[in-house]
């Protein structure tokens, strides 16, 4: 029955995608369809990557309140952007071919996230409170570093950075989208193959090791998968902090299972569904496209507060 709900989610996403593509379409059809398809692809990729990565992160961290964004991932992105612009200058930054820039960003984010998540999930970091605090303090540190560099930079360079600081689903390069989709599909396939081992992983390090799972190796693999998924999605559109939390907790509620073979696809589909639906409503029905990231963050933030407040003390 949990599997059936995943099927329904997939069906819903297909319908929505169809509506997104064909709503009030006028000539020239080919051109508009191409534009919309690129946007749809970006929304689906980012939503799926964020959802799946958050489920992985929560499993290896052993905590349902965590999301890569919460532990300083978006701050890392902004810092990297700031440093890139500073190093190359605003004009130089804009002059890099978009394909190369994308590869650079993915590489830098991948490396940065392996370092960041690795630091948080170190073997001795079993203390969840310490881990969250470390993540938040790291985020503050990274944000402080970005701000310091931003104060020193040329105002026109700063405008370039500012644009990169917020998620935007507007103009997405089809080439980048293709690369992202391939990386994402690969990461999702590996995650699904590892689903039974991830179920064991969720029992906690002690129990998982007792059952003969090489827990530390599993955490490292999950870390790499997560890094690949969030880096690609962030390099594509920019940081979305709370979307992952919203999708992961929704996926758990909706499927009512602990099994990753169901949870990962459910979270991926839900993430895509939320973004596509949001974009559809804002762009097609309300005519204000830029608000999507803000609204998703708003509801994601609400979901986070709800989860924190409803948790019964044990």
């Amino acid at each position: 029955m949990a599997e059936r709900r995943v099927l329904w989610l997939g069906l819903g996403l297909l319908l929505l995608a169809g509506a997104f593509l064909c709503w009030q379409i006028r000539a020239p059809y080919g051109f508009i369809l191409e534009l919309r398809a690129a946007k749809l692809g970006a929304l689906v990729c980012v939503g799926a990557a964020t959802g799946a990565a958050t489920v992985l992160f929560q499993t290896v961290a052993g905590n349902r309140l965590l999301t890569p964004g919460l532990v300083g991932f978006d701050a890392l992105f902004v810092l990297l952007q700031t440093l890139l612009v500073t190093a190359l200058g605003g004009v130089g930054f804009a002059q890099i071919p978009s394909g190369l820039r994308f590869v650079m960003e993915v590489g830098a984010m991948g490396l940065g996230s392996v370092l960041l998540f690795g630091l948080l999930l170190r073997r001795d970091a079993k203390d969840i409170t310490r881990m969250i605090l470390t993540g938040i303090i790291l985020g503050v540190l990274l944000r402080g570093a970005s701000e310091m560099v931003q104060r020193l930079m040329d105002p026109s360079d700063f405008a370039v950075v500012q644009q990169a600081m917020f998620a935007s689903f507007g103009a997405v390069d089809p080439g980048q989208l293709g690369v992202s989709a391939v990386v994402l599909l690969g990461a999702l396939a590996v995650s699904l193959r590892l689903a039974p081992a991830l179920d064991v992983c969720a029992l906690g390090r002690g129990t998982a090791r007792g059952l003969g799972l090489d827990h530390d190796r599993m955490v490292r693999i999950a870390l790499l998968l997560m890094a690949a998924m969030v880096s690609v999605s962030t390099a594509l559109v920019g940081p979305v902090t709370f979307l992952g939390l919203l999708t992961a907790s929704l996926a758990r509620h909706l499927t009512g299972t602990h099994r990753h073979a169901v949870l990962i696809p459910a979270a991926a589909l839900l993430g895509a569904l939320i973004l596509v639906a949001g974009q559809f409503v804002f762009e097609r029905l309300l005519g204000s496209a830029s608000a999507l990231a803000v609204i998703v963050e708003f509801f994601g933030g609400l979901a986070f507060l709800f989860l924190v407040l409803k948790r019964r003390p044990r």
Partner: peptide
Amino acid sequence: ALLQQSPALVSRL
């Protein structure tokens, strides 16, 4: 097989 003291709880299990 080892059962440790107070193993972690997984909800929905």
